[in-house]
Nucleic acid binder design. Structure first.
Lengths: 94, 94
DNA sequence: GACACCTGTAAGAATTTACTGACACATGTC
DNA sequence: GACATGTGTCAGTAAATTCTTACAGGTGTC
């Protein structure tokens, strides 16, 4: 999840998505100013991290649109939390 | 700062450092189980991000030891905060 | 002086991540 | 059918990180 946030494009995607409320892939690519395949890759990582949610919908003219929106998350980033996160990686000091 | 946290080694360094209280470079390298130059690199990034602090000291027998300790930080990670962070990157939607 | 410990840095290889361009497929309109 | 829109994926390349190896310096002890 932390590595999902460690990227300028992905922060910008989240910001744009937050401002727009929601948006679908092709439109979002135009708004953010990056290519669609690249955006697709970033959205994939953001979704895996649980930072965005996707919802497939049909537009009035029958086109399939995949809408994305930012998820509601709140993590209190402290040294202690990171110690817990580190413990997840592998058993070492146990 | 987020990219500083997006690395397993660095999380482990923070965890070890938090457990030990403080430690100097060579010792910490042995504790974490990575090479000293590599640890040095990671400590550099952690320090740049303000996540650890260093303090050069002299041991009883005259050796120079560079002690590191985790800094006290607390960031409330929310969508809104990330929007602010994204705004820092470059003026775009203004 | 040779060896133990400590410190730092710098060059090159290896790995991971990011990115582009091309492809395949679907629906609706001219 | 040709063209517009939308969706996804995959192969190959470019770029950024990560890691190793080797170097250079310091102090103290045998």
């Amino acid at each position: 999840m932390l590595s999902a946030l460690a990227n300028p494009h992905r922060l910008r995607i989240l910001a744009t998505l937050k401002a727009e409320g929601r948006s679908y892939v092709s439109q979002l690519a135009r708004q953010v100013g990056i290519s669609r395949p690249l955006l697709h890759l970033h959205l994939q990582k953001l979704e895996e991290a649980g930072l965005v949610t996707s919802q497939l919908e049909l537009s009035p003219d029958g086109k399939a649109l995949n809408f994305f929106a930012v998820a509601d998350f709140a993590v209190h980033l402290t040294p202690d939390l990171l110690v817990q996160a580190a413990a997840t990686l592998s058993a070492k000091t146990e």
